[in-house]
């Protein structure tokens, strides 16, 4: 199957005070039509930057220096401004982490809904309005007709995120990028929103790129997972493999830090020692070596590449490349990461 989106070895840099800071490097992954791909990683590892680069929304200071973002036949890093605007909100949509601030406070929900519909679906105002109401109903907003006339401040966070979803899905995009869509919401609303996204995805065969901190959310929704660390992809696998056999020490650390109900209550929750290196001072060699319990001399000097260890399972680590066999079952992970 030909992937819908293929991100190929991209490097993203930001201009700040006349110096260039590289935020994301050698990031590659692909998204197939209709699948859900999860992206996890610590704060600041470049998840949002990667997704914004697909939308061409890096802003004035940011740009993709190297690599390609293939969407169909087109390289999104090279298309014209006009073309990327046609794609945004139409073929690729995005919803953001902060529903409270993502809607414009001085325009009605209806106004903001209709804007994109008129632009991409070329509907007349009346038809656009009816369609907007229909979309609001679809995402489970009660009194959709009245909500159209409301301003965002009158809606709760969960409702606003539903509006964002309605807006994002109105033009039946092929890809929906959801950047931590539920982080700002409470748990019950979180589950509802994820459920809603799944239902709508099935209806329209939209691929979803789900960015989150929450491994629980990943386990429930994603088909495939990409783990990012310090601006790079360190592991990619389907969701079962990743949870069962995480290969990269960082992924193993992440897994060990999930609380499990069945564990003894006195057992301490594991955490990864140290903190993410800052983008201005990336360590040489493997970027994780400063925190890795298995780090060798080679890890400090040479940077590993993202390599296939099995079909569909890629890891960026010298250890797996060398013996290819060692898994986390060799040593109990809790001992390593405490």
């Amino acid at each position: 199957m030909k992937p819908l989106l293929e991100v190929n070895q991209i490097q993203i840099a930001f201009e700040s005070d006349s110096e260039e800071v590289i935020s994301v490097e050698e990031v590659s992954f692909s998204v197939n039509p209709g699948e859900t791909i999860g992206i996890v990683g610590e704060s600041g590892c470049g998840k949002s930057v990667t997704s914004l680069s697909i939308m061409g929304l890096l802003g004035k200071n940011g740009k993709v220096n190297k690599g390609q973002i293939l969407f169909g036949e087109e390289d999104l890093t090279k298309v014209s401004n006009q073309r990327i605007r046609d794609i945004r909100g139409n073929e690729i949509s995005m919803i953001f982490q902060e529903p409270m601030t993502s809607l414009n406070p001085v325009f009605t929900i209806g106004n903001q809904m209709i804007e994109g519909i008129k632009l991409h679906l070329k509907m007349n105002p009346k038809a656009a309005k009816e369609y907007a109401v229909e979309m609001l109903k679809k995402v489970g907003i009660p009194r959709a007709n009245e909500i159209m006339k409301e301003y965002p401040h009158a809606l709760s966070g969960g409702m606003r995120q539903r509006v964002m979803i309605a807006m994002a899905l109105a033009c039946k995009p092929k890809l929906l990028i959801a950047d931590e869509p539920t982080t700002a919401l409470d748990v019950t609303i979180q589950a509802q929103i994820l459920e809603l996204m799944k239902t709508l995805q099935k209806e329209s065969n939209t691929a979803i790129m789900l960015i989150t901190h929450d491994l629980g959310v990943i386990a429930e929704t994603a088909d495939r997972v990409i783990v990012m660390y310090a601006g790079q992809v360190v592991e990619e696998a389907d969701v079962f493999t990743l949870f069962k056999e995480p290969k990269h020490p960082y992924t193993q650390g992440l897994m060990a830090s999930i609380p499990h109900l069945e564990y003894e209550s006195e057992q301490r929750l594991a955490s990864i020692p140290g903190s993410v290196p800052s983008i201005k001072h990336m360590p040489a060699g493997c970027r994780f070596h400063t925190r890795c319990p298995y780090a060798t001399e080679r890890c400090e000097q040479e940077q590993p590449r993202l390599k296939d260890v099995q079909a569909g399972h890629k890891v960026r680590c010298w250890l797996t490349e060398e013996d290819g066999l060692r898994t986390n079952s060799d040593q109990p992970k809790e001992e390593i990461f405490t």
């Binding site: 929304l57 605007r85 945004r88 953001f96 809607l103 325009f107 804007e115 994109g116 807006m167």
Partner: peptide
């Protein structure tokens, strides 16, 4: 943030600035 939303809809920069 809401300007990013407006841009993500595919609106022209002129509309983003002068309307939103």
């Amino acid at each position: 943030d809401y300007l990013r939303t407006a841009r993500a809809k595919g609106l022209k920069e002129f509309v983003v600035t002068n309307k939103h």
